[in-house]
């Protein structure tokens, strides 16, 4: 897979419904009430409505990345900071841009990708992910084990807002 710094990933739009939020909570087995109980979210949690839970946001981000890499892409590391709850009724947009590409000592090619989850003008979640991509037709990141699979090898992975 040929990847270069600056490559842009296609945008992904998701209209967040109650089903989106509740199915996300159910599939991650997260029964905290703010992810399925509207009255609790408003009156106890103090949020606008029920909102996407953390594992489900991680799942959407992984899906967004592997839509781009194809099935051979293997997620190694990701960080995300949730600045604003993503609630029912939000029009969520994923955008991504490749920050850098590197090859570690084991020959694994890594793409560091900045991903933003936006609602309107607001950046709701800021993410950076490191995903292994095949360096050639013969390379398979999923075959890597032990010392051949080191997502921390390319160095620190910081959110844009953490970088000096």
């Amino acid at each position: 897979m040929k990847v270069s710094a600056g490559d842009r990933l296609p945008a992904l739009k998701v209209d967040v419904t109650a089903r989106t939020v509740i199915m996300g909570a159910s599939s991650s087995r997260d029964w905290q009430p703010q992810h399925h109980d509207h009255a609790w979210a408003l009156n106890r949690a103090g949020t606008r409505d029920i909102f996407l839970n953390t594992p489900n946001q991680g799942g959407w981000i992984e899906r967004y990345l592997t839509d781009w890499t194809g099935p051979a892409g293997r997620l190694g590391k990701m960080r995300f900071r949730m600045r604003r709850s993503i609630c029912v009724g939000d029009a969520l947009v994923f955008d991504g841009v490749v920050r850098s590409v590197s090859t570690d000592a084991a020959g694994c090619t890594w793409a560091d990708v900045d991903v933003t989850l936006s609602v309107g003008e607001d950046s709701a979640t800021e993410c950076v992910a490191r995903i292994a991509v095949p360096a050639s037709d013969a390379d398979n990141p999923w075959a890597r084990r032990g010392d051949d699979w080191t997502p921390d090898a390319p160095g620190p992975l910081e959110l844009n807002s953490q970088r000096s």
Binding site: Q34, G46, L75, R79, R81, M82, R145, W149
Partner: peptide, 15 residues
């Protein structure tokens, strides 16, 4: 009594 997650980081190993 209330709680939210503000930040998450995952480093992945064997599937």
């Amino acid at each position: 009594p209330e709680g939210i997650v503000a930040y998450n980081e995952m480093t992945l190993g064997v599937p």
